[in-house]
């Protein structure tokens, strides 16, 4: 029998952390998005031609959303599970009648929900700067949700793996941020020399940004189904790693 109460309290506890710092939770994505629009959308963007018939300001919206979704998902989920480990309170979760899946749904569900809310806030903020018309809302929602879940899973893995705050920071800083910036967030890979176009194809974030952008404007670097397949592969790999971590009690159980 599923322990719904446990899922509920973990989810609620994690969401309350964001609620208690509501101002930061809302203000920081609003502010950073506004800054990106001022700098890239207006100042620089006004000198850049339309890409695939889409103004540069609008073109970067899906990329900006992805940038925040990825970093926020990883940050929220990794901190969510790392902190109980760090403070020692994880003993309570480990000694409760909860399955690994229920723990995962509680923590990852909350982290993904928070990212989703931030994504929507960014979309609303962006709407003040540029006209946005979403051509495929269903696809857009699918990419949005799948991205939130899979990167929250990645964050959860990092949180389990990390043994100190430095490690908690290192993956987002050294891996995720560069991948996001080099994944076509602010440009189409058509703008790159052929060699770098090919290199970019090894960047998983490219597929996310491309698919997400397609759902807005039908403009993409790679086929939308390839994007969908890539995110599903990424999700499966993360689930596989989490399953292995729980099965072996990695960094949780001696």
């Amino acid at each position: 029998m599923i322990n719904f109460q446990a899922i509920k309290v973990i989810y609620h506890h994690e969401m309350m952390r964001a609620w208690n710092t509501l101002f930061q939770t809302i203000a920081s994505p609003v502010l950073s998005t506004s800054l990106y629009f001022v700098v890239f959308g207006s100042a620089i963007g006004s000198r850049i031609e339309d890409i695939g018939g889409v103004s540069y300001g609008a073109f970067i919206v899906p990329g900006l959303m992805m940038l925040s979704l990825l970093t926020q998902s990883v940050a929220n989920a990794s901190f969510g599970i790392f902190f109980p480990k760090f403070s020692g309170t994880v003993y309570e979760i480990m000694s409760a009648p909860i399955s690994s899946l229920e723990i995962l749904i509680g923590f990852v569900g909350a982290a993904a929900s928070k990212s989703l809310i931030i994504g929507i806030i960014i979309l609303i903020t962006a709407n003040f700067f540029v006209d946005i018309h979403i051509m495929h809302p269903f696809w857009m929602a699918t990419f949005l949700i799948l991205t939130c879940i899979s990167f929250s899973l990645l964050g959860f893995i990092i949180g389990l793996w990390a043994t100190n705050f430095e490690k908690l920071q290192v993956v987002p800083l050294l891996v995720i941020t560069p991948l996001v910036f080099l994944g076509g967030t602010f440009y189409s890979i058509d703008m790159l020399p052929p060699f770098w176009q090919n290199v970019s194809l090894f960047n998983p974030v490219l597929y996310l940004v491309s698919g997400f952008r397609w759902s807005f404007f039908e403009v993409s670097d790679v086929n939308v189904y390839v994007s969908l397949a890539m995110i599903l592969v990424f999700l499966s790999v993360c689930l596989g790693i989490v399953w292995w971590m729980f099965k072996t009690g990695y960094r949780l159980k001696q």
Partner: peptide
């Protein structure tokens, strides 16, 4: 081992929920 920023009543409610009790 405690979550420093949690409040007393909330943390006890949390524990009860973790163990599947209404």
């Amino acid at each position: 081992a405690i979550a420093a920023f949690d409040k007393v009543f909330e943390t006890v409610q949390y524990s009860r929920g973790l163990f599947g009790k209404k």
